[in-house]
Design a protein around this nucleic acid. Structure first.
Length: 442
RNA sequence: GGAGAGGUGGCUGAGUGGCUGAAAGCAACGGUUUGCUAAACCGUCGUACCGGGUCAAACCGGUACCGGGGGUUCGAAUCCCCCCCUCUCCGCCA
């Protein structure tokens, strides 16, 4: 959500954002409804004001103990007079009440439509963001490391994992259907070792580790911007009006929703490991091989809540990207950082970068991380504010998030890059401490 | 799941139909004073929306808000109904 005043005053900028982000949003309708809303509020407020005035008068007439009533008696008026006069005033309230009722009914419809439309308005992308239609127009910012050149025919992670009994796709599918899997033995250990490395790294860098709910109220899904629009992607529990999160970002970002923080508390840096649930609706037939696109995975996510200052949130954006890179560098995996273009970045984001890690079997870089800054888009929806010390004003925070590591997707490059000619897999140096010193699988 | 008690401003907490947007305390902010840390005293201090005002503020007016939503009433924090949440006890249980 963005400020309605900004929409009114900078309509062209919003229109441009709608166009380059390729979003459906009827801004003209919104502005019309906004006008209706304001007009009807003015009318209703006026009537309510009249009614209030009359009511307080009646209050005086009806309360013989009041000072006003006593004064009137002292002036020689009788209690009967006053009673009759009070009733006369009371008779006037009927029409006003009817008017208010009518206006309120109309207002209700208007506000409902207004709120629904407001949820569709996109955040305005930063000037740095390249304009483009889809991920093919994302721009490479930098590369780190070199893809390994094999002097033998490398196998893919499914072949390797199955051979070693560390990935069991067949039984995963038996248990839960397509896009499910089991990690077994050293595979499961490797998965946990990577998560632990990521968690330790991010904690060392000043982020508070948090354990969060993964089944949350719909409110939090709306608040973080996943709803409306993302309902198809989420597992929703209709009986309870709750949804399984697709990322711990939801829980971490919404954590302080409806609260008023003090400026001194900021920035708040949080990190959580959680299982992430994704229906992958609309992705039928896409990336069906192996552990790339699956219905559940574990991810360490980092979130920052900071002051409403673009240069500050921009600085933190680079910080959370650097945090993710540190983990990839520790794992010695080659990757590149992509700046995501307008058409691929999503409704709420000001700026977005993906990190793609080299995956030998795909013969390309595959997305493993996604770092977004939202400005106050999420904070407005979540009613997440802080009191500015100087101005004493309540302002919406800025929010940002990035993956630290997501596994098992990251196991694809790990297993494939670290395979040996004999089919064994070397455990990356950084993970051995988390695996009881094991140096290789197979 | 059953029974009971509650939900009031940044926090604690009074308030059971009009004089209550809401006592008091804490915190915060401004000031005075004691040589520093700190304390004492005086003062200020809710939020959102709408309108006016301004380059922008200060500011002025209106309305709404005492967990959420309905209702009764001329008038609701206060009475009624539904829902949510917290606490205590009982039951069940990783």
């Amino acid at each position: 959500m963005i400020d309605i005043k900004l929409i009114r005053d900078n309509t062209d900028a919003v229109r441009h954002a709608i166009k380059v982000k390729r979003i459906t949003c009827d801004i003209d309708r919104l502005l019309a409804v906004d006008n209706d809303r304001r007009a009807s509020q003015q009318q209703a407020d006026q009537l309510r004001s009249q009614l209030k005035e009359l009511s307080s008068q009646i209050g005086h007439y009806k309360n013989p103990k009041s000072k006003w009533f006593q004064d009137q008696l002292a002036k020689g008026r009788t209690a009967d007079d006053l009673k009759a006069e009070g009733e006369q005033i009371q008779a006037q309230t009927g029409d006003i009440k009817d008017g208010i009722k009518e206006l309120e009914e109309r207002e209700r419809g208007i506000i409902e439509e207004f709120n629904a439309l407001m949820l569709t308005v996109p955040q305005i992308p930063s000037e740095k963001t390249p304009v483009g239609a889809s991920d093919t127009e994302n721009v490479e910012v930098r590369r780190h490391g070199e893809p390994r050149k094999f002097d033998f025919e490398p196998k893919d992670h499914v072949e390797l994992g199955t051979a070693h009994g560390i990935i069991d796709l067949e039984r995963g599918v038996k248990l839960a259907g397509t896009r499910n899997y089991l990690l077994r033995g050293a595979g499961s250990m490797l998965h946990h070792a990577i998560l632990r490395l990521a968690m330790d790294t991010i904690a060392q860098r000043g982020f508070e580790p948090v354990t969060v709910p993964v089944l949350v109220n719909d409110k939090q899904m709306y608040g973080t911007g996943y709803y409306p629009g993302g309902e198809e992607q989420a597992y929703r529990c209709e009986r309870d009006d709750k949804s399984l999160v697709g990322t711990a970002e939801v829980s971490l970002t919404a954590m302080y929703g409806d609260e008023l923080l003090s400026e001194a508390q900021l920035p708040i840096k949080l990190a959580a490991v959680s299982t992430c649930f994704r229906r992958e609706a609309g992705a039928a037939g896409k990336d069906t091989h192996g552990l790339y696109r699956i219905h559940f995975f574990d991810k360490v996510e980092q979130v920052i809540l900071c002051r409403a200052d673009d240069s500050e949130s921009e600085k933190f954006h680079h910080e959370i990207i650097a945090n993710a890179e540190a983990v990839l560098q520790a794992l010695e995996l080659p990757y590149r950082v992509m700046q995501v273009c307008t058409g691929d970045m999503g409704q709420g984001k000001v700026e977005m970068y993906d990190i793609e890690t080299w995956m030998p079997s795909r013969k390309s870089y595959g997305e493993t991380h996604s770092a977004s800054r939202f400005g106050d888009f999420q904070a407005r929806r979540l009613n997440l504010r802080y009191k500015e010390t100087e101005s004493k004003k309540n302002v919406f925070c800025h929010t940002l998030n990035n993956t630290v590591i997501a596994s098992p997707r990251i196991l694809i490059p790990v297993i494939e890059q670290y395979q040996n000619a004999d089919g064994s897999i070397t455990i990356p140096q950084a993970l051995r401490g988390y695996m009881g010193g094991v140096e290789r699988i197979g």
